[in-house]
Write a protein that binds this DNA or RNA. Structure first.
Length: 261
DNA sequence: AAAGAGGGCAACCGCAAGGAT
DNA sequence: CATCCTTGCGGTTGCCCTCTT
């Protein structure tokens, strides 16, 4: 038995969009917006389903779309974000202004998967080196009431404000660079470490766990193995999704995946 | 020069979530 | 509370272009 189409397709056009259709869609959205995708094609006089119009707009016609090849930096960012988020293309796209989830998904499947494979091959060839990275499992991120436990982590105490990023319980960094040394923690910190900034830290002070393929997509794994600085979370959100910027920036700041290999 | 292979990318499909009724 | 509708998302498809033989 053939499944009925998800939307009415009788008389509706499919396939590649023509420049004329694009023009109509752009003009209509500019004039009336896109509050209702389903009704839009009818109102605009397009023989397309709403879904198709939405996709065309989001992936191609939106004025803030960045066209052209991905830069090296963007590719690196995608690889790192994919390590953290898995196949959550929209979440990855949200971190890359002007890039769409579809575009990122395509570039992943066409270029970056291969690139990463090479990296992983390299990694497996250097397993011995890999095993020298210390593994820690004393600290749980999942329970914010465990903040006392964080103070038992010697390697990261004193990590407070990272320039260009914000910890979940701190205010957004201001444009003034003088704010870099601002201490914003609310609990669990020791007074004598308040002047220490991430910038001044030796990267060797940060210890990441051994990472395998499942690590970043497994919150439980992350929660049980990553070393969290004392007082870093305080009363702030504690889940990974609550502040992905925080995790990503921390990861990148500490050297990213290369640092772990 | 022609044919086949492979890659890149736009578009489609189906499902799930969330809101409206 | 149940059902319907709409939107958003990730996976997949298929066309077109380029490269290789």
């Amino acid at each position: 038995m053939v499944r009925a189409p998800c939307c009415e397709k009788v008389g509706l056009k499919r396939g590649p969009w023509t420049p004329e259709e694009d023009k109509i869609l752009i003009s209509h959205i500019q004039n009336y917006g896109h509050s209702n995708w389903r009704a839009l094609p009818k109102q605009a006089g397009l023989l397309r389903c709403g879904k198709s119009c939405r996709l065309r707009w989001i992936n191609y016609l939106r004025p803030d779309i960045k066209r052209g090849n991905f830069t090296e930096e963007e590719e690196e960012a995608i690889i790192k974000l994919h390590e953290m988020l898995g196949n959550r293309w929209s979440a990855i796209a949200a971190k890359l202004p002007g890039r769409t989830d579809n575009e990122i998904k395509n570039v992943w499947h066409t270029h970056l998967k291969k690139k990463l494979k090479q990296k992983q091959d390299f990694k497996s060839n250097n397993k011995q080196l890999h095993e020298t990275v210390p593994k820690c499992d004393e600290v749980s991120v999942g329970n914010q009431s465990d903040s006392e436990n964080y103070s038992n982590v010697p390697t990261l105490t004193g990590l407070h404000e990272i320039p260009g990023m914000h910890s979940p319980m701190s205010p957004q960094p201001s444009s003034s660079s003088s704010d870099h040394s601002t201490v914003t923690e609310t609990s669990g910190a020791t007074a004598e470490t308040d002047n220490i900034t991430f910038e001044n830290m030796d990267s060797s002070e940060i210890i990441f766990p051994v990472i395998d393929e499942d690590f970043w997509s497994d919150e439980a794994g992350l929660a049980s193995e990553i070393m969290i600085p004392s007082g870093f979370y305080g009363n702030g959100p504690t889940s990974i999704d609550d502040d992905m910027d925080f995790w990503y920036n921390l990861f990148v700041k500490s050297g990213g995946i290369e640092e772990l290999l």
